[in-house]
């Protein structure tokens, strides 16, 4: 008996997702490549605070009420985030202090970087133990990275600035695996398109003259992107690359993660175990959530009043959220 099949093309949600992602990246690359300084100011103003709220909301939705077998892991995570944040803020705000010479500041910065790397490696190792897998490869990798942090500290710090945006993309990949597996292949193609856009940006901007540093803000933006470390690369290219990657980072947290994980939608508090579980801490959770929203509003007012100072303060304290991302990401592996 013969069977007749109709082969047709159906537009699926994965197709729409990938087209929208690539289109958004193309528009972002074009705009950011043309106006890097202006877009840097605008994106930080609009999205920095809200994306932190979304991150906090997402992490709390992933935090179990009872830690159980993950107790050691979460304790190690908190034992890393709090002191490393405090130490970073100490280094940051005391960098002009007469107590510390430039050499001692560089040494303490290298010590901080090493502590951070060892902490992340410890989390990898603990997660491997939990999953009963041999992740001891993390130990030699950690020591290799620590040696780089000492021998090329400026490049190491700059590498962190550029690697951080990819953390969000990794989060999204793990989340799509869990809640929208039909989008996984499309998302991998979307990720593959990012180097393509970076190469286009670099090819079109490598010959551009350096961006203006006439104001303290512009100097800060250039310096954040590494213009003083990579002096032979156009700062226009560096700032555009950094702002492009950060924009994808904000896009992922604000839009894509809530899209693939309904539990990450901010107002669906019943999906947060810490809020809805009978053993949860609903009042404390709501207080923290309200405080984070209020801080975002204060941040907007701060940006409007004195953008440069607010930006400096924000990026100093933002290290806390960067550190907090690592335990939750490693927990998802």
């Amino acid at each position: 008996m013969q069977e007749v099949r109709t082969i047709g093309y159906r537009l699926s949600s994965a197709h729409v997702f990938s087209v929208a992602f690539v289109l958004a990246c193309a528009i972002a690359a074009a705009l950011i490549g043309s106006f890097p300084l202006q877009l840097s100011v605008v994106t930080v103003f609009l999205f920095a605070g809200p994306h932190n709220v979304m991150e906090f909301r997402y992490f709390t939705s992933r935090m179990p009420v009872r830690w159980g077998r993950s107790r050691t892991f979460y304790l190690a995570a908190i034992a890393g985030v709090l002191p490393l944040t405090a130490a970073y803020l100490t280094l940051y705000f005391s960098s002009g202090n007469w107590l510390w010479s430039l050499e001692s500041l560089q040494t303490f910065t290298a010590v901080w970087n090493t502590s951070f790397i060892l902490w992340v490696g410890t989390l990898f190792y603990l997660r491997g133990q939990q999953r009963r897998k041999d992740w001891s490869i993390a130990i030699p990798i950690v020591f290799l990275l620590a040696s780089l942090a000492w021998v090329v500290p400026q490049y190491w710090s700059l590498a962190l600035v550029y690697v951080h945006p990819f953390i969000a993309m990794w989060f999204l990949e793990r989340q799509i695996r869990r809640t929208k597996p039909e989008w996984l292949r499309a998302y991998h193609y979307c990720l593959a398109s990012i180097p393509f856009f970076l190469v286009i940006l670099w090819a079109s901007l490598y010959g551009k003259s350096n961006l203006s540093q006439e104001t303290n803000l512009f100097w800060r933006i250039n310096q954040h992107a590494g213009s003083e470390i990579l002096q032979n690369i156009s700062s226009h290219l560096l700032v555009a690359t950094h702002v492009f990657l950060e924009s994808i980072h904000y896009f992922v947290w604000l839009l894509l993660i809530p899209l693939v994980d309904k539990r990450a939608i901010p107002w669906k508090l019943n999906d947060v175990p810490l809020f809805s579980n009978i053993n949860g801490i609903p009042k404390i959770f709501v207080a923290f959530l309200t405080a984070s929203v209020l801080i975002t509003v204060v941040l907007w007012f701060g940006f409007a009043a004195d953008y440069t100072t607010t930006r400096d303060i924000y990026f100093a304290f933002a290290i806390g959220h960067v550190l907090a991302e690592f335990p939750f990401l490693i927990k998802m592996l």
Binding site: P140, I141, S147, V151
Partner: peptide, 11 residues
């Protein structure tokens, strides 16, 4: 320090 960590990494 970098030599120490590099040695540990290789070993």
């Amino acid at each position: 320090m970098s030599g120490l960590f590099l040695s540990l990494a290789i070993v």
